[in-house]
Write a protein that binds this DNA or RNA. Structure first.
Length: 427
RNA sequence: GGAGAGAUGGCUGAGUGGUCGAAAGCGCUCCCCUGCUAAGGGAGUAAGGGCUAAAACCCCUUCGAGGGUUCGAAUCCCUCUCUCUCCGCCA
């Protein structure tokens, strides 16, 4: 959520910033509503004040044993006037809040202009793309030939966009997850966290998936609905929902491995083959809580932590800065990390690292005491994948493939694979 | 699933219709005292919003959430959510 005060005072500037995303914010309409709200609020508070003082007068008269009937008569119609005023004020405030919840975050000034993914800016590349001297296969061919990926079994029980992974490949995914968590907790100072996979609506409003992106989420039909988390960002960031931290409690860094569930409602026809885009996938997520003036540096740090994973796995990648038109709803600035997939001869997203500034903190009421003033102030939140395990598995398979269809195991994963160096078909 | 108890400020916890945004304690801030430390004494200390150029002042809201009763609700009534205890079931 954008600061409502800023919205009122600089609605036009806000509209200009949001227009870079292609979002049209009707500043005139918003300001007109605010103007009406102001008048109604002053009026309502005036009536409330009257009610309070007359109630007090009646109480005093009663205590003194005086006749308070005339006082009662004087406030006869006050209640009705007040409740009318209150309900129209509330109606207006709900409308304003709906608009505010629908507004994407302000972009950081450094975000490049652009319309879509084609306009994203490459920041750096790492690693050498291997020039195979045989015809490369994609992860689908490799996995099925090994007998370790079974899309048919998955679709029989769950339909499309699910995968069954078996044997050494299933273990390799687990190894990837263990390796990532160990690296982040032992070398990068994150606290490992186990979190719920089902959350209430409020948690998703806090991080910004709701109310706008309900279609992308799976929801239970229990009496009070649960949502399956689309990313560990949701439970991790909500660790500070409604929390007032002491001045010395920042920064904080959390890491969690969770499955992620996405209905992928808007992605029909994209990546239908293979396990690039699934309803369920595994991911290690990183979240930072920092003070307001520290989030820019934290984003660089966070992105670097995700890159370390790919470097240790010796997977070629590039970092791109998302342009104004491609950046996510709540993010002020985002770096995507894209890993090289030989099977597609393309870089594909494997991590997305974003600075949300106070956008989520405002929705969640995540604050800390300012060290000097002692007054509460919103914190900044950041999150990034560190990294998507399902896609990391694909990347390892395709980049470490051999002529005979076997797959080499990256050196850093071997300790998690009983020292094995290669995955070959079982006979 | 059944029975019961509860939800109050940064935290613990009192408060059952009016002068309660709320006792007390902890914590925190400032001051005093003590040669240092330990201890002691005093004062202050909720958040959000409106008004304001900004602030002060003033005003409004908030005692889990939402409704209701009342001139007036932390307090009474209803619904919901959450927490805890016991029983049942269960990895």
């Amino acid at each position: 959520m954008i600061d409502p005060k800023l919205l009122r005072q600089s609605a036009v500037d806000v509209a200009v910033n949001l227009a870079r995303r292609g979002y049209i914010f009707d500043a005139d309409e918003y300001l007109a509503l605010q103007e009406r709200r102001k008048i109604l609020q002053v009026e309502t508070q005036q009536l409330q004040s009257e009610r309070n003082s007359s109630a007090k007068a009646i109480g005093e008269a009663k205590a003194q044993g005086e006749d308070f009937e005339p006082l009662l008569a004087a406030v006869e119609d006050l209640g009705e006037r007040l409740s009318k005023s209150e309900s129209s004020l509330q109606e207006l405030q709900v409308r304003l809040r709906d608009i505010e919840l629908d507004l994407p975050n302000l972009l950081d000034d450094s975000v490049p202009d652009g319309k879509d993914a084609k306009d994203n800016v490459e920041v750096r590349t790492w690693g050498k793309i291997v020039d195979f001297d045989f015809e490369v296969r994609d992860h689908i061919d490799l996995g099925e030939a090994l007998g370790m990926i079974d899309f048919e079994a998955a679709s029989r029980m769950s339909g499309s966009r699910f995968t069954v992974i078996k044997g050494a490949l299933a273990r390799l995914q687990r190894a990837l997850i263990q390796f990532m968590l160990d690296t982040h907790t032992q070398e990068h100072g994150y606290e490992e966290t186990y979190v719920p996979y089902l959350v209430h609506e409020q948690a998703l409003i806090g991080t910004g998936q709701l109310p706008k992106f309900a279609d992308d989420l799976f929801k239970t039909d229990t009496e009070t609905p649960f949502y399956l988390i689309p990313t560990a960002e949701v439970p991790l960031t909500n660790l500070v929902c409604n929390v007032l931290l002491e001045a010395d409690q920042l920064p904080q860094k959390y890491a969690a491995h969770t499955p992620c569930f996405r209905s992928e409602a808007g992605s029909y026809g994209q990546d239908t083959r293979g396990m690039i885009r699934q309803h369920q996938f595994e991911k290690v997520e990183l979240v930072h809580f920092v003070a307001v003036d520290e989030s820019k540096a934290a984003l660089e740090l966070l992105t670097g932590h995700a890159e370390v994973i790919l470097q240790k796995l010796e997977l070629p990648y590039r970092v791109v800065e998302l342009c104004a038109g491609d950046i996510g709803f709540g993010s002020a600035k985002t770096y995507d990390i894209e890993v090289w997939l030989p099977g597609q001869q393309k870089y594909r997203e494997i991590s997305s690292c974003s600075n949300y500034n106070d956008f989520q903190a405002r929705r969640m009421k995540a604050r800390r005491r300012h060290p000097d003033t002692g007054k509460p102030e919103l914190i900044h939140t950041l999150n990034g994948s560190g990294v998507a395990a399902g896609r990391a598995l694909i990347a390892v398979m395709e980049n470490y493939q051999n002529d005979d269809g076997s797959i080499g195991i990256p050196a850093v994963l071997r300790p998690y694979m009983s020292g094995a160096e290669i995955i070959s078909a079982r006979h």
